[in-house]
Each structure stands twice: as structure tokens, then as C-alpha cells.
């Protein structure tokens, strides 16, 4: 008897939990909404994303080329400094 009661309680509790765990149902649509009438939070223009993508590519490529240029310049300066040091030392 106690076992049956416990099983009944468990099934009821599980069912109630399952019912309340369901996501709230969206009300049925009564009409279509044109895209330009959507709230701003649901609109996502593509143009800024496209512009951002192209800008990233340009900026990353230019920045990287500049870093190589700068590093080459630094190494060349070090080579010149070494050559000058050797010349001053009379070697």
C-alpha cells in the first residue's frame, strides 16, 4: 500500500514538474509582420558585419606587413651598429 502511494506521489510529482518545465507556448500568429516593422532588437543589418569583415582583413594584413617592415628595419640597424663598432675598434 505504502509502495503504491509512493509510486503515485512520484508519478504525480514528475508529471507536474514536466508540465511546468515546458517552455511557454507562443501564441498563434494572427498576421504576418513585414521585416521593417520588427522591433530593432530583432533586426540585424548585414552591412556593418560585411564592412567589419573587410576592414578586419585589410587592417590585419597591413598591420602585419608593417610589423615585418619594422622588425627588418631594427635588425638592419643592429647590423649597421655592429659594423660601426667593429670599424671603430679597428677590426
Amino acid at each position: 500500500m505504502v509502495r503504491r502511494m509512493l509510486a503515485w506521489l512520484f508519478v504525480t510529482a514528475a508529471s507536474v514538474t514536466a508540465v511546468f518545465a515546458q517552455p511557454p507556448q507562443e501564441p498563434a500568429r494572427e498576421q504576418y509582420v513585414p521585416i521593417d516593422q520588427l522591433p530593432p532588437s530583432e533586426q540585424m543589418p548585414s552591412a556593418p558585419l560585411v564592412v567589419a569583415a573587410y576592414s578586419v582583413v585589410w587592417l590585419v594584413a597591413m598591420f602585419y606587413a608593417w610589423t615585418i617592415w619594422r622588425r627588418i628595419g631594427k635588425v638592419e640597424d643592429d647590423m649597421l651598429a655592429l659594423a660601426r663598432k667593429q670599424k671603430d675598434a679597428g677590426r
Binding site: M44, S46, L49, A52, A53, V56, V60, A61, Y64
Partner: peptide, 20 residues
């Protein structure tokens, strides 16, 4: 090093597309 740079480009432009 160049591979890392182009990979960074791909990993940035991809999510920008995926976001929408």
C-alpha cells in the same frame, strides 16, 4: 607566422557571418 595571420582573418570573418 603568416598562417597564424590568415587563420586569424578566417576566424574573425567567419563568426561575423555566423552571427547573422
Amino acid at each position: 607566422e603568416v598562417a597564424v595571420m590568415f587563420g586569424a582573418m578566417g576566424l574573425t570573418t567567419g563568426p561575423l557571418w555566423a552571427y547573422k
